[in-house]
């Protein structure tokens, strides 16, 4: 066997061996570099199906309730809220991007925001955009009621920007 062939095979073998090592490291890259850290509420707009940072139940961005209607022009409007922020209660700091989906609130595990609150009902309230892209809050027959500012809701009500919605000990509001 010629010297050249053997040299090529020798170096080739080393290359393949190292390739294996490198591929192996690539396989476990996600483990080596740990976990992915996502800023809450940093979900990109315009990509509604992108699975958002979802690990804890309270921040589940479910695609189960399909987008009600494609809001025409409502989204790009100036002054339209872009996210829902929990400002009081155990989930303080949680945000959910508003992307035209219905957001359910309650203690039930399949709620978008799972409330850990003794005074909340399983299916307490929902927040959804109407035809014009205006966000509406509706009480779902809860035991203790849903309050917008200081008034208890009886009918679906449009939510002004920054108005506190109180559910048990939790307060949420819409922000730009």
């Amino acid at each position: 066997m010629s010297e050249l062939t053997l040299t090529v095979m020798r170096l080739g073998f080393l290359a393949v061996l190292w390739l294996f090592v490198i591929v192996a490291v690539q396989v476990i890259r996600s483990d080596l570099f740990g976990t992915r850290v996502t800023q809450r509420g940093s979900a990109r707009r315009g990509a509604p199906d992108r699975p958002q940072a979802q690990q804890q139940q309270q921040q589940r961005q479910q695609s189960a309730p399909p987008p009600q209607r494609q809001q025409s022009g409502g989204r790009g409007r100036r002054g339209a809220p872009t996210k829902l922020v929990v400002s009081e209660g155990t989930l303080t700091g949680t945000t959910v991007a508003l992307q035209g989906q219905t957001i359910t609130l309650g203690r039930a595990h399949d709620s978008t925001i799972v409330l850990d609150d003794d005074y909340a009902s399983s299916r307490h309230a929902r927040i959804y955009p109407d035809r014009d892209g205006q966000w509406i809050v509706e009480d779902l027959g809860s035991t203790n009621g849903t309050y917008l500012d200081r008034t208890r809701l009886t009918t679906p009500t449009p939510i002004p920007l920054g108005a506190p919605i109180r559910i048990g000990k939790t307060v949420i509001e819409l922000r730009k």
Partner: peptide, 15 residues
């Protein structure tokens, strides 16, 4: 991003 939410992070394993 509003300042009140930037310090909360979500950690999830990839893959």
């Amino acid at each position: 991003m509003s300042s009140s939410t930037t310090n909360t992070t979500t950690i999830s394993t990839a893959g």
